[in-house]
Design a protein around this nucleic acid. Structure first.
Lengths: 105, 105
DNA sequence: GAAATATGCAGGTAATTGCCTGCATGTCAA
DNA sequence: TTGACATGCAGGCAATTACCTGCATATTTC
């Protein structure tokens, strides 16, 4: 997993919207996804390319169409590496902050 | 929570490194953090500003120093909103992908 | 108060990003 | 096979980003 590509891919509202759209209905084509986006097809296509490069979306060609599927694996790995680490220490970290704000050092 | 600020803040390796450094030792000053970064102090300061704007880091002034603390709340909310959603559907999404690759439609 | 220390602010620049238009390629259907 | 449809590729442009330098401010220490 390339954490940088995954995070950068998620750092754009259009791309997060694309993931949401695919979550509602997996396997949509570029054309279908475009209908919900209010931007040129080529722009959406670039966003999908970035999601694909981050391995968050996998594609399958079906004749002249290209169907897009969410790949949940990298997101799971991001969770394991990034979120859980802070989640485990969450209460301790909040405690540090609280104590410092109270000025107790 | 401003999801966009949080994701954009996380979408840079230097800023993720800063969070890791703070996770090792919470409450470090700008100067301390800089020693591990190999870039000008001002650059690191900008990165910390972005983390602070995303509410991922909170700061407390202590005389001429500024101490930095991780705020785990936004990351938790990102997890709730983004990761769990796909995590719950993870096996189903993988199944969609597998079936499509196998060409079974 | 003067020197050293910790940080803040302003601006400049090269690289990247996100959007677009125009054109090319590949596929289906009449 | 021709016209319609789905997508790919190339390039251009404005905005943003990530880095820097130079200087200002605030705090501690001698």
């Amino acid at each position: 997993m390339d954490a940088d590509k995954v995070f950068k891919a998620l750092g754009d509202p259009t791309r997060r919207r694309l993931l949401d759209l695919l979550c509602e209905e997996n396997g949509q084509t570029l054309g279908q996804l475009c209908e919900n986006l209010d931007m040129a097809r080529q722009s959406a296509s670039q966003h999908l390319g970035i999601l694909e490069a981050a391995n968050l979306v996998s594609t399958v060609k079906r004749g002249r169409e290209k169907r897009h599927f969410i790949n949940p694996v990298p997101l799971h790995e991001v969770y394991e590496r990034w979120v859980r680490k802070f989640e485990r220490r969450r209460l301790g970290l909040l405690h540090d902050l609280k104590k410092e704000i109270e000025g107790e050092e």
